[in-house]
Design a protein around this nucleic acid. Structure first.
Lengths: 337, 337
DNA sequence: GTGAAAGCGCTAACAC
DNA sequence: GTGTTAGCGCTTTCAC
């Protein structure tokens, strides 16, 4: 029955047009749900399309429309539960906006991240989202010159026309202090991280301590399990043991927990413990960790919004969108002995 | 200097050709590294391209080549650390093969997963990878009819021409038993999961127990923290407490750990504990969990290979690629008291 | 080796 | 409302 067109290929708009006995442009209109098409023709086209199993070719459409309705998302580390949740937010937002998401990962390697970006640009993405990127400022600036670009999760990497979406880390750093102080704690320590996000969290912690008339106690750690462990060790060995510890993120809090248990102490009986990011780790009942939540879904949504807006007005100055974190109290914090 | 072409657009092959004073086809050849081009012209083209900041338009190329060199990856749940690591494997393999990866997530919703697949097909992906998909068999079969398709992580969902890459769960289920028996354990219990992957793990466990002349002890749990907790509770309440527990995955093992600690017991002193998947959770020092590792990188690589091969011979029968798991012993297992 | 011409599947601008 | 025409930026015959 089918024309002798060699191996059966995906049907095109032309196939459908012939089948329905109408013009190609009519089919195009129907497929895109245009309003001004007579009902009879619309039905005919729809029937023909269904019969043939027609599916619009987005590649061709993108070429002629000179846009792909696709945004490229570069994530430096897929294993970080925080990133997975921001991606969920992006997914939601792109889906609602009729956009698609191209996801690439540079595995924390700046050179590789550069490659991924180049590939995104060749694919003509409508926008670029960088999730906590690890790349030189000039690479970012170059990208932002080509296409609407937004950095999520880092406030320290800036470039002209490159928008930023971040959690207010300084406000977030104060939340556990307020919570713990209210519970009656006086000696509240902080295990500080290193890199983007860490300094403001620490600053927020210190400011809050002062506001409560308390003496800040800070040890250096990092955003890893190991860093939290070492930091907590240092705190527990000190002459005056703190009654509460606020770790720079959940993973570090987990490390701190290890150190606390190794020391024969219990949480929250002997020491209260709080983290940051409210990842699923915090929710696990074994930990049930009080943690600071970043509104990840909202962050994803704001990132997409930033791209959409910049598409329309490419030359507006870069803008920082700050979102407010909030505390989720769980059973790792309680009143001091 | 630039021609009065309205707002500066991305340079095309034509722009470069004019600038270099050669034909468009020559530029095309040079950009793709063709061998038979004189050195002089090649340099001229390269110089012109660099000067103009030319970047090949992959959309146009895809249209004319009728292939996108892109594979669509559908992952049901980005938060599962196991998935993140398979994606890393896919990333590696696609990168090496000059392919790109389009990533979509259906958030465990069959309807949404169907939408994502449809979108992939419209985008003309060269292949489809489904990571532990949650979708009806007919959706899968329909996809496999259109494009090379491979399911990773589930052996129970089959369709004609749809390849499968899975870990040998049955072999994997035996590994902890062998390990624990060798340490001297006799009462080794299993917290079983529910859904894909769970029955073979359990079968492997039971077979191994019999091989060692031991009596299987199985309680029903699931692949969650909660499931592991409940399962372990049941085991600890029993008349004869097991000396070792093998949970169906790492998350369930974490739940089991909670129950064990709540009961005032210690790991591995009172009870040895093993998990499955060897996710980063297992590596966290707080847990240091003995776990069965699935070679995720290899699984990613095999998935890409399956697609490549089927592209060439679309009608070969569906093939199951089984990969061998291995045990990673850590400090959550030890000799019984 | 190199250039000219055709066309991938689609949308857009314009006639009717 | 509907059909016709001209490209989108590229690769690919096919001449030379």
């Amino acid at each position: 029955m089918s024309p002798p067109k060699a191996a059966s290929r995906r049907p095109t708009i032309e196939t459908v047009a012939q089948r329905a006995g109408v013009s190609k442009s009519l089919v195009s209109l129907v497929m895109r749900g245009a309003p001004n098409v007579s009902d009879a023709r619309r039905q005919a086209v729809l029937a023909a399309a269904a019969e043939l199993g027609y599916r619009p070719n987005l590649v061709a459409r993108s070429l002629v429309e000179r846009r792909t309705r696709t945004i490229g998302v570069l994530v430096n580390d897929l294993h970080n539960p925080f990133h997975a949740e921001v991606i969920d937010g992006l997914h939601e937002a792109t889906h609602e906006g009729g956009l698609r998401m191209l996801l690439g990962t540079g595995r924390r390697d700046p050179a590789m991240e550069g490659e991924v970006i180049e590939s995104f640009l060749q694919q003509d993405v409508d926008g670029l989202v960088m999730l906590s990127p690890d790349l030189p400022q000039r690479t970012l600036a170059a990208a932002a010159r080509q296409v609407p670009t937004v950095v999520v999760g880092r406030a320290d990497l800036r470039a002209p026309r490159c928008d930023i979406v971040v959690n207010d880390d300084e406000a977030g750093g104060a939340l556990p202090v307020d919570h713990l102080a209210e519970l009656g704690h006086r000696r509240i320590a902080h295990i500080a991280g290193v890199g983007a996000g860490a300094p403001p969290r620490r600053a927020g912690y210190e400011a809050a301590m002062q506001r409560h008339g308390l003496e800040p106690i800070v040890v250096q750690g990092d955003f890893t399990d190991e860093g939290g462990y070492e930091g907590a060790r240092a705190l527990l060995d000190a002459a005056q043991r703190p009654s509460a510890i606020f770790a720079c993120n959940d993973l570090a809090a987990l490390g701190a927990l290890t150190a606390i248990e190794e020391a024969g102490l219990s949480v929250p009986g002997d020491i209260s413990l709080a983290g940051y990011d409210n990842t699923y780790l915090a929710r696990v009942r074994h930990l049930s960790l009080t943690s600071v939540d970043q509104p990840r879904t909202e962050m994803g949504r704001l990132a997409v919004q930033a791209i959409t807006e910049r598409r329309e007005r490419p030359d507006t100055p870069a803008r920082v969108r700050l979102v407010a974190p909030h505390l989720v109290a769980r059973s790792s914090t309680g009143a001091p002995r």
